[in-house]
């Protein structure tokens, strides 16, 4: 059972639709007991960092996610990925979950529009169980902030006037800056691999 963590924000149903489509047993829940019982966790998110962390706190989910993080695979998506880091500078400095060392900062790509919207190619950086060796894999991004972290935590970058961490990993903690649930077959494959961990 994969639990999609519901803290009142995010594109829960897109993620659920994708999991249903690939035949993964799943439920949307904000119940700490269900989160503890889950085989895998997905932390979605769309919106602003401080609001999302506040909602997570308000739902009493911060500590249970931190506690469960090392025990089972966890995937953060988009803002959910950014929340895995130590802190973010979006609208002032806010603490994140601290599951991957690093911070989240406003992107400053030279001469390119912000937000970074669209399909960008994954540039693999070491091995990761969620990725294949294939080249030319495009996934869908929509974001203005990006992770700043050591290369050892980055499984794939994409090039947007700067190297943007696209897929990050620290042990069983994974984060997709892109939306696997909106990235066509490549995205569904990434979700399939995560759900077979």
């Amino acid at each position: 059972m994969t639990v999609i963590i519901d803290y009142g924000a995010g594109n829960l149903f897109s993620v659920k639709n994708a999991l249903e489509h690939i035949g993964v047993q799943n439920e949307i829940s904000s119940d700490p007991e269900r989160i503890k019982a889950a085989d895998r966790l997905i932390l979605p998110g769309v919106g602003a960092f401080p609001d999302a962390m506040r909602m997570l706190d308000k739902a009493n989910l911060t500590s249970v996610i931190k506690e469960q993080a090392g025990k089972k695979p966890l995937m953060g998506i988009c803002l959910g990925m950014q929340m895995l880091f130590d802190k973010s500078s979006e609208f002032g400095l806010t603490d994140g979950l601290g599951l991957i060392p690093g911070s989240v900062e406003l992107m400053k790509p030279k001469g390119l529009p912000i937000p970074h919207i669209g399909w960008n190619e994954l540039e693999k950086n070491g091995s990761c169980p969620l990725l294949t060796e294939d080249k030319g894999e495009y996934v869908y991004f929509v974001h203005s902030f990006a992770a700043v972290t050591d290369s050892r935590y980055v499984a794939a970058y994409c090039d947007y006037g700067m190297k943007v961490p696209a897929l990050v990993q620290n042990g069983l903690v994974f984060g997709c800056q892109f939306h696997p649930e909106k990235s066509g077959e490549i995205g569904l494959d990434i979700l399939r691999r995560f759900n077979s961990l």
């Binding site: 639709n17 929509v142 909106k182 066509g184």
Partner: peptide, 8 residues
């Protein structure tokens, strides 16, 4: 559509 199509 959102149940069948996984692009924005």
């Amino acid at each position: 559509t959102a149940k069948k199509v996984f692009v924005p």
